[in-house]
């Protein structure tokens, strides 16, 4: 919900001020990754039927995915608008990308036993 609010604010800012058009990708990803993807994984981890013997690591993987995804998104929010001004802004974006990729893999790994189970 925080990401959704931030995303809507970023969208309004990007629309009102043409000089802030650089934050448009940040706005889209706050809504699609920060809100939509997290909502999907949150509900799936709660609702998908658990197998009788769910591995203990499933909960840990879910938390790892949650923290990495949010850390990656935060780095993106900071790095993307800075990209045009400082080298460090561009430098943190690959870290953000890697964190989000590992987060998604981790969340899918946590859910996998529930999709596979009969």
């Amino acid at each position: 919900m925080i990401c959704l609010l931030l995303g809507l604010i970023a969208g309004a800012v990007a629309t009102i001020s043409p000089s802030m058009a650089a934050i448009r990708p940040t706005w889209i990803h706050l809504i699609t990754v920060g809100w939509l993807t997290q909502l999907i994984f949150g509900v799936a981890l709660w609702m998908f039927p658990r197998p009788r013997t769910e591995p203990a690591k499933a909960g840990t993987l879910g938390w790892v995915g949650f923290w990495l995804l949010n850390a990656g998104l935060l780095l993106r929010i900071v790095g993307e608008p800075m990209r045009g001004f400082t080298a460090s802004g561009a430098a943190i974006l690959p870290i953000s990308a890697l964190l989000q990729l590992v987060a998604v893999a981790s969340l899918l790994w946590a859910l996998w036993p529930r999709v596979r189970a009969r």
Partner: peptide, 11 residues
Amino acid sequence: TAGALMLSAPA
């Protein structure tokens, strides 16, 4: 993965 590549490419 495609998105991560695009985000990292300039750096």
